[in-house]
Design a protein around this nucleic acid. Structure first.
Length: 589
RNA sequence: GGUUCGGUAGCUCAGCUGGAUAGAGCGUCAUCCUUCUAAGAUGAGGGCCAUUGGUUCGAAUCCAAUCCGAAUCACCA
């Protein structure tokens, strides 16, 4: 039970005893007291003044006294300033908090344990991962970690979009231009290798269209008649018919891509309990469409295409099966929703997908509900905003995409340069150094992408992202390393004795005490940025404390012991928070 | 045009279930390393919280309208 909840309940209880009026605890507003005013926590009285017919001062005095009696040993004194009831929490309470908190048990497990699936990453197999994928991967991984920390059972999954016309385009281009070359021949990462052929396809396509137009064809017609497009379409048909040679090539090229993805996933720490492939799941959706037809959830048009009418829900009609019987995106997702729920018996399923698909997921959930699939109500779309560059949107056609592998390499190089320039790790082995550069470079990048509200689109400014000062991952990593450095000197075996806390010591205790609440907030909102902000505030506060007070050379042994424990708890909390973001914290840097 | 989301310091963002004088970081300027790691700390400067109206003891926060920006409304995934 945390202190704020306690205060709310006590307020509600005391008002009831004093005046016989029921005010639910969750309607009580408890804030941290403004720094200039005496006190730790503040209850806003205005909300009750009218209802109780009391003046703020009179109410404050009566309520304050009653609550002091209700929470003995915790509340020390109170004052009233302009309708705000400020309580000072007793020194004993905070000392006891520091004394009794176990650094290995910072977050109590939830009582409402659930099985939750987090689907994220979801790449296409025709091009390498880019900056947008990184935001997706970091978000998905982090959300899973936060839910785990709460005590839920979490399954991380990935759906690979491995079939369709776009895949055929790379395949055609490879056939035409590669001359049998492989990633091994060209010493290229497989996903980049295949991605290059996707680009080559587009170049060839554009050239062909231009030729046709030059020959007198209308642009519109030319765009449909370009021979290379025709070949790709023919190939898709062959693929769907199961043509051996086509399937063979498809498998071969996809394998190259997966090899490349694997390298990147390993580097960024993305992992999946299970990977689903669209080529395996799209048939399932079709069965559900049949079922929906019998249940009359769907209807068929004259051309035999199948639709759902969502106009009563304020949406449009949506196609779920083409006239030729092939499946669309929605068909596959219906099937996948059903499959995932069945296989893992999930209570909820979180889809980490960009906000351009808000409409799709709204419709998906509606359809699943109308089909009465067990998965339906648990569908939750974690919609995140696009990553844009200061120059505008990333567009693959204009070559303004930030490639994930390039960016990772750059960040790691920068962290290497900066670390070397500071020269604090001369005792590291080459292997340790490499690990440290990775930790810092990746930490900077992950923190940068996770520190803003996922729902909002974000601007990726390369100069800002490589900053290692201020509101950044390395700042927090550094604070952690600093604490660890002190603890190496002082040791961590301690015996605490009661102790009058200085203001900064108390502030740290307060900040540390809200960690579980922050985790809950981040989990409820599926928002890791709450954790990033918290970690930053905690680190900043510790740094202020660090410059003001010495741990190793504290005035007394009691103080020293107390501060060591504060150091232990701060380091542990920083490590946990950063762990939730997928960021490691070094012992030394 | 419909729907959804956004507009807060020069830049990037917090704050939004209404509460005290709107906060950080970066950048700018100025201080602090014979003292536990200066990837740090301290201070200064920087704001009609898009606009207008409403609700009330109180509005960046809620409501309405307007302006600006984005996404989406595909037999692409």
């Amino acid at each position: 039970m945390n202190l704020i909840t306690n205060l709310k309940q006590s307020t509600s209880k005391c008002i009831h005893t004093l005046y016989g009026v029921n005010i639910p605890a969750d309607q009580v507003l408890v804030n941290a007291t403004k720094p200039e005013i005496e006190g730790d926590y503040t209850i806003v009285l205005f909300a009750f003044v009218k209802q109780l017919g009391k003046s703020p001062d009179a109410l404050g005095n009566e309520l304050g006294a009653a609550m002091m009696a209700d929470m003995p040993g915790i509340l020390n004194q109170f004052n009233i300033v302009k309708g705000f009831l400020n309580f000072t929490i007793s020194n004993d309470y905070w000392f006891d908090f520091i004394n009794s908190t176990d650094p290995n048990q910072l977050v109590p497990a939830t009582e409402n344990k659930q099985k939750i699936m987090v689907e994220y990453s979801s790449p296409n197999t025709n091009k390498p991962l880019h900056l947008g994928h990184l935001r997706n991967n970091f978000l998905g991984w982090s959300i899973a970690e936060i839910l785990k920390l709460q005590g839920h059972e979490v399954f991380k999954t990935c759906i690979v979009n491995d079939r369709g016309i776009h895949i055929c385009k790379s395949m055609i281009a490879w056939q035409k231009f590669a001359n049998g070359a492989t990633p091994a021949d060209t010493h290229q990462k497989g996903d980049h290798f295949v991605g290059d052929y996707y680009v080559k396809y587009n170049d060839a396509y554009k050239a062909e269209v231009a030729d046709l137009v030059a020959g007198g064809m209308l642009l519109e017609t030319a765009e449909k008649e370009a021979p290379i497009l025709k070949s790709a379409q023919a190939m898709l048909l062959l693929w769907e018919q199961g043509d051996a040679a086509t399937i063979d090539l498809w498998k071969r090229m996809n394998a190259w891509v997966y090899e490349g993805f694997e390298v990147t996933y390993n580097k960024i720490g993305s992992d999946f309990l299970k990977t689903y492939y669209e080529s395996n799941t799209y048939l399932l959706g079709k069965e559900l469409v049949e079922e929906g037809l019998t249940k009359k959830v769907f209807f068929q048009k004259e051309d035999s295409s199948v639709w759902i009418d969502l106009t009563v829900d304020g949406l449009d009609e949506k196609i779920v099966r083409r006239k030729d019987g092939t499946s669309v995106y929605m068909t596959q997702d219906i099937g996948l929703a059903q499959l995932k729920q069945k296989e893992f018996n999930t209570d909820a399923s979180i889809y980490v997908v960009g906000d351009e698909q808000n409409y799709h997921f709204k419709v998906l959930k509606l359809i699943c509900q109308k089909l009465q699939l067990p998965a339906a109500d648990g569908i939750y779309h974690l919609s995140y905003g696009m990553v844009e560059l200061p120059t505008g949107k990333m567009k693959s056609r204009e070559g303004t995409v930030v490639d994930a592998d390039d960016l990772l390499e750059e960040m790691i190089n920068i962290s290497k340069e900066k670390t070397e320039a500071l020269g604090k790790v001369s005792d590291f082995t080459p292997a340790q150094l490499e690990e440290l550069y990775n930790t810092i470079g990746l930490g900077a990048l992950k923190f940068f992408l996770l520190r803003v509200d996922p729902k909002k689109k974000m601007i990726f400014n390369p100069e800002e992202s490589i900053d290692f000062h201020g509101f950044t991952g390395p700042f927090i990593q550094y604070t952690h390393a600093r604490i660890k450095s002190i603890l190496r000197k002082t040791g961590t075996t301690i015996t605490l004795t009661a102790n009058e806390l200085l203001p900064l010591e108390k502030q740290l205790a307060i900040e540390l005490s809200i960690f579980p609440a922050i985790i809950n907030e981040a989990a409820d909102n599926l928002d890791p940025s709450k954790i990033a902000i918290y970690a930053f505030n905690l680190a900043k506060l510790f740094n202020t404390f660090y410059t003001e007070h010495s741990i190793a050379n504290a005035d007394s042994e009691t103080k020293k012991q107390l501060r060591i424990k504060i150091g232990i708890l701060t380091a542990a909390t920083l490590q946990k928070t950063m762990g939730c973001l997928g960021i490691a914290v070094p012992e030394q840097m």
